[in-house]
């Protein structure tokens, strides 16, 4: 292999792929959160938005219902690339780490980076579950699958205590994963140019993690407490 080929296949490039796909997924989460907040605008508004997203977005450039599939394929591609690079990097780390220490003290390592890989794996399971509930309608606790009325699915599901609790844990894992991921993505892409940018990127990471947690939990909590029905 030439040096160029080795450099293209290096850990640094795999990290860059993880950074870019990760940021795409953060962007998707922000959009998803915004959509969920429409629960507060009432059933008509919420359902109109959901159906527009699934059928009419980018129409007439694309035929009805095409956008959502192209978008899903794009997101799945991002997840697959993110996961593939993560697995290859983990493999390199396990080899690089060698024999474990008898005693090890860590000062810089945060909770979110310590559990980053495990939370990432858990998230795949939780996201699959989420899709089985609201997208395919395979598993429907507290609601009936209705393509035309996603509002009733949202409200029905979050009135079930354990769905609400599991969702809280799910979002907590997402936000911890994102806390390190956000800062790490920008650093990997070269944005960490000095101590002040390190601080800024870390603060932004906390901000976005907190924003997403609050933004996703707010409508779900409102439904659970019966403020929105």
């Amino acid at each position: 292999m030439s040096v160029q080929q080795k450099a293209v296949r290096s850990t640094v490039v795999k990290k860059a792929i993880m950074a870019l796909t990760g940021l795409v997924l953060v962007g998707f989460l922000l959009m998803h959160m915004f959509g969920n907040l429409k629960v507060f605008a009432g059933p008509a508004e919420y359902n109109h938005y959901a159906l527009w997203l699934k059928q009419d977005l980018l129409y007439p450039i694309l035929p009805h219902g095409w956008f959502i599939w192209l978008f899903r394929i794009f997101l799945i591609l991002c997840v697959v690339l993110h996961l593939y690079c993560a697995l290859r990097l983990t493999q390199a780390s396990l080899r690089g780490r060698g024999t474990p220490y008898v005693r090890r003290k860590r000062k810089e390592q945060t909770f979110s980076v310590r559990w980053l890989r495990w939370f990432g794996l858990l998230l795949i399971a939780l996201i699959s579950f989420h899709i089985l509930m609201f997208t395919t309608g395979t598993f429907t606790p507290g609601f009936e699958y209705q393509f035309e009325d996603p509002y009733s699915m949202y409200v029905g599901a979050f009135q079930v205590w354990w769905v609400f609790a599991a969702y809280g844990v799910f979002m907590l894992l997402v936000c911890f994963h994102l806390r390190h991921g956000f800062w790490s993505a920008f650093t990997t892409l070269g944005a960490n140019v000095g101590p002040s940018s390190r601080l800024t990127l870390n603060l932004l990471a906390y901000f976005f993690a907190a924003l997403l947690f609050v933004g996703f939990l707010l409508p779900a909590t409102a439904v659970f407490l019966g403020w929105v029905i």
């Binding site: 850990t11 640094v12 390199a92 780390s93 690089g96 390592q109 980076v113 790490s184």
Partner: peptide, 22 residues
């Protein structure tokens, strides 16, 4: 230089950076 050194770094068995900061 950067291409050759990164290729050598990965080649000799070091792991990838995770921006931990230790």
């Amino acid at each position: 230089r950067v291409k050759a050194m990164v290729a050598a770094h990965d080649g000799v068995g070091f792991g990838g950076c995770q921006n931990v900061g230790e």
